[in-house]
Design a protein around this nucleic acid. Structure first.
Lengths: 202, 202
DNA sequence: CTTTGATCTGAACGGGTGTTCAGATAATTT
DNA sequence: AAATTATCTGAACACCCGTTCAGATCAAAG
């Protein structure tokens, strides 16, 4: 087994995925050709097939890796007991993580329709698992009488849509820092779940 | 000028746009071929060029028409004076209008990157005009001391992202009706702008 | 009934697509 | 130094792309 160390595959493999991620995000999966990806990496198109069985799987692997990272990163967060603190942790985590991986986030919900049905099911399942994390927090808060949320599932969808929306406009270097934005959004999330008439504790 | 009345163009033109709208929404602009659109309409691909100069313009015209419709429909809504009532009107309008034109809404922000720079500027300008409608309501409410919104621009983005998210999960015929959903989302929007500690007037 | 012209067909144009594969290349092991 | 083999090239495959256009079609106008 010659050429295991110093092999180019350790370098080329990640470069293929990086190039595909960036190109898929900026131009769209269908609009990007294998030759274009190969060109970015500096190889011929045929060489890509040492790293992926086909274009579809390349897309799927990027999305799957992103969703796995997302779930792993959330599970690695220290989880406070109190629902209010957990919710704040979730809101800030979601904004930060999504901002750091804007390309992967973008692909993972823009290119869902380009997945085969089986691959779609996998990604969709992971996405639901992530949403369930938030829904569980909301239900816990409701059970403890801390949150006033009539429809936890819908509030889950609404909060995630709101938080994910940060990526459409926020760019570092502007008037507001990411922590500023996290604070503003957390404030809106908090209001959305707080019993009305509760005092402002700021 | 023969064949002006009873001409097929009155029929074929809209059918081309309908087919393109549906196909672009479900498979994506780049993944849909002119032959595919033509097949849906029941003509050969060449015939499409009686109705659009090229594929890019076909996409742009669909998006432009949608944005024009959106702005016209909102301006046609009776506008109450009070910011709170105006905001409620906006939230319910946005959910209903977007639900009724799910395909056009989907295209109008999924396919932005497939527009030429000039076309992109046009659509982007219309989108900003729409967002400004909401921002103006928020600023009006703040000025009157009715809303507690520190960052009207950000709240605008957050509210629109939240409301637009309805389209990703809501389907008629489920447990909740569209009016149910409108009420739930309006409740969240109201909380997001209401001064905290204010009584629940439900 | 002939003329007109809007509409559509069908073929063609140059070029791009994902994927395959025999053979060249070169780093590592023997 | 020779043998091994992971990696890559370059050409080829069959097919699809957006767009053009000469000529067919046929309903309305004269």
């Amino acid at each position: 087994m010659a050429r295991t160390q110093g092999s180019h595959s350790d370098i080329t493999g990640p470069r293929v995925r990086d190039a595909a991620l960036r190109l898929f995000a900026s131009e769209g999966y269908a609009a990007v050709s294998m030759r274009q990806i190969a060109g970015e990496v500096g190889v011929q198109a045929g060489a890509l097939y040492n790293y992926t069985p086909d274009k579809q799987t390349l897309l799927f692997d990027l999305m799957k890796a992103h969703m796995d990272d997302l779930l792993a990163a959330w599970e690695a967060e220290a989880a406070p007991d109190a629902p209010m603190e957990r919710l704040e942790r979730f809101a800030r985590f979601h904004i930060r993580f999504n901002y750091e991986r804007a390309d992967a986030v973008f692909i993972s919900y823009m290119e869902l329709r380009n997945l085969s049905p089986e691959n779609f099911e996998v990604i969709e399942g992971l996405r639901r698992r992530y949403e369930d994390q938030l829904e569980r927090i909301l239900r816990q808060g409701v059970a403890q009488g801390i949150f006033d949320v009539a429809e936890p599932k819908i509030t889950t969808m609404a909060v995630i849509a709101m938080l994910t929306g940060v990526n459409t406009w926020f760019r570092e270097g502007g008037r507001l820092s990411l922590p500023d934005v996290q604070k503003i959004y957390w404030d809106m999330v908090r209001r959305a779940v707080m019993p009305q008439g509760a005092p402002n504790l700021d």
